[in-house]
Structure formats: C-alpha cells, structure tokens
C-alpha cells in the first residue's frame, strides 16, 4: 500500500536522524573537535524543548508564543538550585529546610513541577481565547516573566546566573561532554517516546480532533478546554526540563532564555522540521544548529538566510523537512 510506504519512509528518516545525532559526538571525538559535541548536545536539548512545544502546537494546534517562559523557568530552577547548593545557603526553611540541589534528577523534577505550576494559570486564561489572541496572551505572559527575571537582583537580574560546576547525575560524570550529551540524548529519547504514546492515545485523539474541529469535539461530549489545558501543562513540563538541561550545558542562565526570541526560535524549529511530526523537532533542531554554526561562521546576518529558508519551507514544503521527505502525515 502507498500509505504503508509513506509511513515506513517516515520511520526510516526518523531512524536516520536519531542515528546521525547519536553519531555526531563520536565523529567529533574521532576528528578531535570536542566543540562539535557541544553542538550535538545543543541540538538534542533544543529538540527536547521543541518536542514539548510540539504537543501544544503540533497536536493541539495551540500556537504558544510564550514557551520561552517554561524554557527559562527550567533554566532558572537549575541555576538557583545549583547556586544555593554551591553556597550552602537555604532557599527556604519552612516547612523544611531546603538548600537547593546539585543533582539533576531533583532539578529536573522541580523544573517540570514549577513549569506545570506556572503553565496551569497561564493556560487557564489563554485558552479562553483562540487564534491571534492566544498567541498574544501567551507572549504577554512570557514577557512578564522575562521582565520579572531582569528586575530580580537576587539571582543576577539582567546579568544572569552562573552555574559554577555542572550539576551531577548519579553514576554519570556530567563534566565529561560525551557523558552529558548521552544523558541529554536519553532524555530526548524518552520525551519522543512520550510524544508518540500521547499522539496515538485516547487523549491524543481528542487533542488532535480539537485542532481539526473544536465544534465536533464538543458535540461528541468532550470539552476542548480541559483537554487543551492538560496538553499545555505537559508541553510546558517537557520544555521546562529542556531549559534545565540547557542551563547545565552553558553553565549559565540569563533572562535571554525567557525572551520572545526564544519562543519564536522554538516555533521555527517545529515549522522547519515538520509540525505535529514525531521527529519534526529533531529535524528542525539539527537544521537550525547547523545553520547557526555553518552560516554564523560566514556572516553575522545568518538569520537572514534562515528567514529565507523558513520562507521556502512555509511556501513550498508545509510539512517541513519530514513532510518533504516522507510525504503527508496520515492518521489511521
């Protein structure tokens, strides 16, 4: 069957992408270019952030222009936890004394929880609107958090916050670039598995039906609002987790992680790779970082060329890179 072939072609390109990303740091080691490991890690983390956004934007059709808020929140959780743990000063003392943590599992959990905690009120308000209003409200919330971070001197304000030594993970030497890459790659793999499960689940069916036709979803007795709010929260949690990893990669977190440029970048990644496609964010992140690196080395106006490419994708390849290679998405 033709459809069967299109499916397997998408699976094939997914496997190739996963393998290429995994191979990149080993090639870097063979070439004695350790910087490329950082590049590969950056790809994995940005892909993770975009996998999160892809749940809201791709599956749910919720064009959040504020996901930098969660990316930045995850980053600040990592930075703040690490700085308290490093200086051994308590973050709070009631109901129990807590002096931060330099352990990634703790930080990740906190990054996801705080992201969900912030996403629920933002979603509950934003999801009462749709279309361009939804885009603007999510942007407005993210900007509020951005300006809050700038004006909060305790954690660096405008200058950002350094993480003196990369946070640890039990049994892994995270200071080793390859180990840290593999950790990020593993988290990305789990997130992709989650995305795939959700996409094919009952929840995913309702979420995608709501994107296609909200009136229909309500008419079968499923309230779109609740489905979308939960999707928005899951989406925020994954992007927040990516933010924590990003802060650890750079050993630095600053308000720029919260800025609307970042929100836009995440949307660009998804459109570039293929909206609602499982590996769309991976393809998008790989392309984006490659452009940034290759074109950025030639001209500081590399984003101009990125803009041209994006224009080409939007005009001629609506399904992004994955759509271009694997054909139209198919729902059973």
């Amino acid at each position: 069957m033709r459809d069967g072939q299109a499916m397997s072609r998408e699976t094939l390109i997914n496997i190739l992408l996963a393998a290429a990303l995994l191979a990149l740091p080993f090639v870097a080691i063979a070439m004695e270019e350790p910087f490329y490991i950082t590049l590969a890690t950056r790809m994995a983390i940005l892909a993770l952030a975009a996998v999160g956004l892809n749940i809201a934007l791709g599956l749910g059709g919720l064009i959040s222009f504020g996901h930098a808020a969660f990316f930045g929140i995850g980053g600040y959780v990592a930075g703040i936890f690490a700085s308290h743990a490093f200086n051994m000063e308590p973050m709070f003392s009631a109901p129990f004394e807590f002096s931060g943590s330099d352990q990634m599992p703790v930080i990740w959990l906190a990054a996801m929880l705080v992201s969900v905690f912030v996403a629920i009120p933002i979603g509950a308000i934003s999801l009462r609107t749709s279309g361009v209003y939804f885009i603007m409200i999510t942007l407005a919330f993210a900007q509020m958090i951005y300006y809050f971070a700038i004006s909060w001197p305790a954690y660096g304000g405008e200058d950002g916050l350094s993480i003196i030594t990369r946070n640890g993970f039990p049994g892994v030497n995270t200071a080793n670039p390859l180990s840290f890459f593999l950790l990020c790659y593993g988290v990305l793999a789990v997130a992709l598995l989650m995305f795939w499960l959700i996409q094919n689940s009952r929840f995913g069916a309702a979420l995608q039906a709501g994107r296609q036709n909200e009136q229909r979803l309500a008419a079968v007795g499923i309230a779109p609002f609740r489905i979308r709010l939960v999707a928005f929260a899951i989406s925020a949690a994954i992007t927040g987790l990516a933010g924590a990893l990003f802060a650890d990669l750079n050993r630095f977190v600053s308000p720029s992680m919260l800025s609307w440029h970042m929100s836009g970048e995440l949307i660009v990644l998804i459109i570039l790779g293929g909206t609602a496609r499982l590996f769309g964010p991976v393809a998008g992140a790989v392309l984006f970082v490659l452009f940034e690196f290759a074109l950025g080395g030639i001209t500081e106006h590399w984003q101009f060329f990125l803009g041209l490419i994006l224009l080409g994708v939007v005009l001629f390849a609506r399904g992004g890179l994955i759509g271009l290679v694997a054909g139209k998405a198919r729902h059973g």
Partner: peptide
C-alpha cells in the same frame, strides 16, 4: 476515527495517555 471519538467519549476515557487507539 471520527466515530471512535464518540465511542471514547461515551466510555468517559479521554484522559488516557497510553495505549494506541487503533
């Protein structure tokens, strides 16, 4: 799948995140 959505709603189970519907 359009009809399955109604069956799923009738079963009251739209918050299941795992298990492929097809």
């Amino acid at each position: 799948r359009n009809v399955m959505l109604a069956v799923q709603s009738r079963q009251g189970s739209s918050f299941r995140f795992f298990g492929p519907v097809m």
